[in-house]
């Protein structure tokens, strides 16, 4: 019984120490610079992110939205691979079956290369996916594109595994 209490105490201590160590990596609270003021007329409008217009859970529209899959690209490429074409074909079929569904196509890159180039590359990736869907018969007015370059990675890290997940066209479904 005494032994068990000892072990329990050790586990509790481990949690506390890990917590403390985690905190010690952050800058001390006194050093946080308050965000500077921006002139009220220029305050960023809190526009709704298009993806926020989600369908009610369990609805047919949500089921359809869940079937839309992202497309992945090779390093420094925007050409669609055979796998990407298969994915886009499935996505296009979902779009054809759901005429009310619209897509925001986000282009993304991995962290390699410079930000300016990656903004341009991610833009091409989003457009390559859009062009495929348009060629498949989806009305272009249902598709919008935006490039995020390397600015919004899905996975953090500097490994090929992380990079390959970040080179994508991400589809945000709007009903």
């Amino acid at each position: 019984m005494r032994t068990r209490t000892l072990y329990m105490g050790m586990i509790a201590a481990l949690i506390v120490v890990v917590g403390l160590v985690g905190c010690s990596k952050k800058p001390p609270p006194g050093e946080i610079i308050p965000p500077p003021e921006v002139t009220p007329s220029e305050m960023p409008q809190t526009e709704r992110v298009p993806g926020d217009e989600t369908a009610p859970p369990g609805s047919a529209a949500e089921d359809a939205a869940l079937q839309i899959e992202d497309v992945f690209y090779e390093f420094d490429k925007y050409a669609l691979t055979a796998r990407a074409r298969d994915t886009l074909t499935r996505d296009a079929d979902v779009l054809l079956a759901n005429p009310g569904m619209r897509l925001l196509i986000e282009g993304h890159c991995d962290e390699r290369g410079t930000r300016e180039y990656n903004l341009a590359l991610a833009d091409r990736r989003a457009r390559a996916s859009r062009d495929f869907l348009v060629a498949y018969g989806i009305d272009a007015s249902r598709l919008e594109t935006i490039s995020y370059g390397e600015e919004r990675p899905f996975v953090l890290g500097s490994t090929e595994s992380a990079w390959s997940k970040n080179r994508r066209a991400h589809f945000v479904v709007r009903q």
């Binding site: 610079i33 965000p35 500077p36 921006v38 960023p44 903004l119 600015e151 919004r152």
Partner: peptide, 10 residues
């Protein structure tokens, strides 16, 4: 810090 826009800048 100059901005506090809470968004992506490039």
């Amino acid at each position: 810090a100059v901005t506090g826009l809470g968004t992506i800048l490039v």
